[in-house]
């Protein structure tokens, strides 16, 4: 029986995520701690106004918008400060992820938890490469923005005299969906570029990006559903939690609201890292199918072993390294365009 290489990708990705679960928890903790700094500042200002005021009851039992608006305008509350500190927290988290990404991808690639030394070495090693890739990301986002503006102008003009009330809304929604799909494909290309950088220890980011774009576009049928499916999982989970929040949680139960909020935050991180893990698994399988196993480097041997642990290759397929990274790379670059079928390992005799 022949299996496609993408089969079991979700499960395999989940497996990598679990194997390196400390990564997930660390990302969550950093996300929480940075946000806490912003929330604590706001909390201190709010407590001066609310903690000894009976008017606060309007926010505990339900949420009185009138009082909330009055509170936002209160000179002691200053929501602008809170918003700026949220932006600062978001920027810091962004920098953290930019730094940690190399270590995260390396841990997924090796299929095991990295000790701190290995993690930070990987993180530091790939940091500037990912900065260069990030600059390319901004370049690719510009056409997305132009497209959005263009769609908006065209739709606005086309529907200005329409008597159908909702036509403009649905057209804009469709346009946003198209742009979102295109941006997601761009995102995937860059994800694969990052995975490729780590997997092959590459430094020529422009070539890596070009090859990743071609690779992603050729295998979009495999990669996009995985990415979209996991995103959908995140959104559906979020919607379900909000529904529970509104319907089942009493307005004054702050602990339940806190737990539900943290579940959403964790869900978003989990789905995003799961996407990453799946991309790593896919790339490793693709790599292993392009290159004879005898040509694998040290890292690729780890990868092959990881793939073997996924159950795709048999133990006998794992081979010691015999060639340099550049020779391996040349072989990969000359690999066929599409992913061939391969046979699964024979089950054990017993």
């Amino acid at each position: 029986m022949h299996l496609k290489p993408e089969s079991g990708l979700l499960v395999a990705g989940w497996s990598r995520l679990r194997q390196s679960h400390k990564v997930l928890w660390w990302v969550y903790v950093v996300n929480l701690v940075l946000a806490l700094f912003s929330a604590i500042g706001l909390s201190l200002r709010l407590s001066r106004v609310l903690d000894h005021s009976a008017a606060a009851a309007r926010l505990v039992n339900g949420m009185d918008l009138g009082y909330l608006i009055e509170l936002a305008a209160h000179p002691d509350v200053q929501p602008a400060i809170a918003f700026n500190s949220s932006l600062a927290a978001a920027a810091l988290f962004f920098l953290f992820m930019l730094f940690a990404l190399g270590g995260i991808l390396q841990s997924y690639a090796r299929g095991r938890h990295l000790v701190p030394g290995e993690f930070f070495q990987a993180a530091g090693s790939f940091f500037w490469r990912f900065v260069r890739l990030l600059l390319w990301t901004f370049v690719f986002l510009i056409p997305g923005g132009i497209l959005l503006a263009l769609f908006g102008a065209v739709i606005g003009r086309a529907t200005a005299n329409s008597s159908h009330a909702s036509l403009e809304f649905w057209l804009r929604l469709a346009a946003y969906a198209v742009v979102w799909i295109l941006l997601t494909i761009v995102r995937l290309c860059f994800d694969i570029a990052q995975v490729k950088t780590v997997g092959e220890d590459r430094r020529d980011m422009t070539r890596v990006l070009g090859a990743s774009i071609r690779l992603t576009l050729r295998n979009l049928g495999t990669l996009f559903p995985i990415y979209f499916g996991l995103s959908l999982l995140g959104w559906a989970g979020t919607a379900l939690v909000f529904w529970c929040w509104l319907k089942a949680v009493p307005a004054d139960n702050t602990l339940a609201m806190f737990l539900l909020g943290q579940f959403i935050a964790l869900l978003w991180i989990t789905t995003r890292l799961w996407q990453r893990a799946c991309e790593v698994v896919w790339f490793q399988r693709y790599q292993s199918l392009q290159l004879p196993l005898a040509l694998l480097t040290n890292d690729e041997t780890d990868a092959a072993n990881a793939i073997q642990a996924d159950g795709v290759l048999s133990e006998a397929d794992a081979m010691p390294p015999t060639v340099s990274a550049s020779e391996s790379q040349t072989a990969l670059d000359e690999a066929p365009a599409t992913l061939p079928q391969y046979a699964p390992p024979e089950p054990p005799a017993n």
Partner: peptide, 23 residues
């Protein structure tokens, strides 16, 4: 501090999700 905690919790989750959107 019930009202303060409730509003601070909303702000906490908002900031966490904002940070993840940035990333």
């Amino acid at each position: 501090g019930s009202a303060t905690r409730k509003l601070a919790n909303y702000w906490l989750v908002f900031t966490q999700l904002l940070a993840q959107l940035f990333s």
